[in-house]
């Protein structure tokens, strides 16, 4: 990022379910912090990462699992000019999920398209 002016392509590759581990929340925080820099950012959701975007998450801090429902924060990403969200079709279908199950609009892509996108990146951050 020290090379000012050079816009780089950053992809956040998310492969873990939310809540059970800290990866999903950490990734989201890095995305929000990184948004302060002028980069071309995309988020890809693969394997259990697709569960991060499942709508209707009902967590409560005082009952239930006692954690914040951070799935709402994905809806703020467009305010941060992040609108490239990709879901791998194979991962989605293996889990019985459909496009309408997600909390934000996403592009459903096949594995070959995902490979191609990954190959175009300058940096891939894996969570």
């Amino acid at each position: 990022m020290e090379e000012s002016g050079a816009i780089k392509k950053f992809m956040y590759l998310n492969r873990k379910a939310p809540y059970g581990t800290i990866y999903a929340l950490e990734s989201l925080e890095v995305v929000l912090i990184g948004a302060a820099f002028d980069q071309e950012v995309s988020l890809a959701f693969v394997d259990d990462g697709v569960y991060q975007l499942k709508k209707d998450q009902k967590t409560t801090v005082n009952s239930g699992i006692g954690m914040k429902d951070f799935s709402k924060t994905y809806r703020a990403l467009e305010d941060y000019d992040i609108d490239k969200l990709y879901v791998e079709k194979r991962s989605m279908e293996a889990r019985g999920l459909r496009e309408e199950d997600f909390i934000v609009p996403v592009q459903i892509i096949d594995s070959a398209q995902l490979s191609a996108l990954m190959a175009q990146q300058d940096v891939i951050l894996s969570f």
Partner: peptide
Amino acid sequence: KPDFEARGMNEGN
């Protein structure tokens, strides 16, 4: 139940 509700999953499924 609290764990599947937190994860957005529905009893009907």
